[in-house]
Design a protein around this nucleic acid. Structure first.
Lengths: 136, 136, 136, 136
DNA sequence: GTGGTCTAGACCACG
DNA sequence: GTGGTCTAGACCACA
């Protein structure tokens, strides 16, 4: 479980942690039934306050992705894959809808928006390819 | 100069004002050399704190879209159109790039990202059409 | 807005605050669009840490009952009544389901469970009657 | 003595064990004077920490359902049946009273509470039927 | 040693 | 002066 956060980014840390855990589930690094990193341990590793990790976990529990059992740890829920997939799409669609709303507000035409999206999409896959080759 | 803001939206009000001013310049409602609405007047009209309008203007000055002339007011800069257009695109592209980065991180394929963008794009134009008919 | 909490109860304070706010909305004491008590103010009144109130408000926002606007306050959302009603029923049904599960586990028959529920129901309304007469 | 627990349920494990022991007494599987399963054995069987079983037994002793005899084990007390029955009802009634209190606080009418209880009661018996057929 | 709640108090974004 | 995030550190329930 390699979770990385960047305290310089404007995205709140607890939210970055949520993203990373969702990603770990989506990629199968964390599987249903697995124990998620312990709160204090992860906090220490990320050099972050335990409360911050706890908050991320708490919100992921509300999403249904994690389940906590007092005294024994936090675990990936049985239906985590479906939930992770769904949540992932939902968040992404939300970002794109927001962008479309902005475009609309600025008077950008639909075709131009599409072109810009295509341009942005070019970066998809490259990074992944790079990551994979890094791991070799 | 009809500037509208929606206090319920999560976008900060100062940012909504910036968008609306950029739009006014892009559509020619405000032309280079024109005086932008006075801070106090606009604040009163929008029922918003003058500081909020002042901040929007301050950031638009940093962008180069507006210029302040001591004691006489705030004016649209000479090269506003180019700057406005450029800035608009830049912001939007930034949002889309961010979305693409997220998609990449989540393992979403390029084709799926495109489909989601298309879906988001459907809302573009509708709202504008509605606004125009409202004004009749 | 009279919100009361009992720090001695085992129910977490933030959760008691949530219940009270939901109740205020359900009874019309707080109406859609109204500003909820300010975080720091309520915290002071309840002699509780602001973080605790903030957490209650945050979770009520996730429910959709409240909407926060940075810099200006926290407000009851437009569709709060429907959400409050729904949420209220959901929580209650959950408690009853839990009781039924326990009854089942203990081998209590359905008829006996019903009788016990009837017995518990006797207290409903009394308290309300008392409250109303107190207000006269 | 077949005691079953579900670590996924939110009810604490020690509490689930208490319920199961009470049930065993109520159904006559454990009779007054019988020895309850040894702590270590039960803990091993349930794959649970011995402390957890010990705690369940300790609280059942406080209730008077079990009695410990130094060095020889834990036994079902002579008046266990009466106590078990009484305790069972007491706990359940407490849960229902709590639910009624909540309902009252939320302004739910007595009739509606009854309907919700009936709805919850539908699950009673089903599970038991299923368990019995599983055992065949 | 797990996670859950709470306090005290700092700093930031926004109005 | 609003709410939002974060840290530091205490205490509790549970295993």
């Amino acid at each position: 479980m390699h979770i990385q956060i960047d305290p310089k980014r404007s995205t709140p840390i607890y939210s970055q942690i949520m993203d990373q855990v969702r990603l770990a589930v989506a990629t199968g690094v964390l599987q249903p039934g697995d124990q998620a990193p312990r709160v204090r341990e992860l906090a220490e590793q990320l050099r972050v306050n335990p409360n911050t990790v706890a908050r991320a976990y708490r919100e992921l529990q509300a999403e249904g992705l994690l389940v906590a059992r007092q005294g024994s740890g936090t675990f990936v829920s049985d239906d985590a894959e479906a939930i992770g997939e769904r949540e992932q799409r939902r968040l992404l669609q939300e970002m794109l809808d927001e962008a479309a709303r902005t475009a609309d507000g600025l008077g950008v035409e639909r075709e131009d928006f599409q072109k810009m999206a295509t341009r942005a999409a070019r970066s998809i896959g490259r990074r992944r390819a790079r990551r994979l080759s890094d791991e070799q």
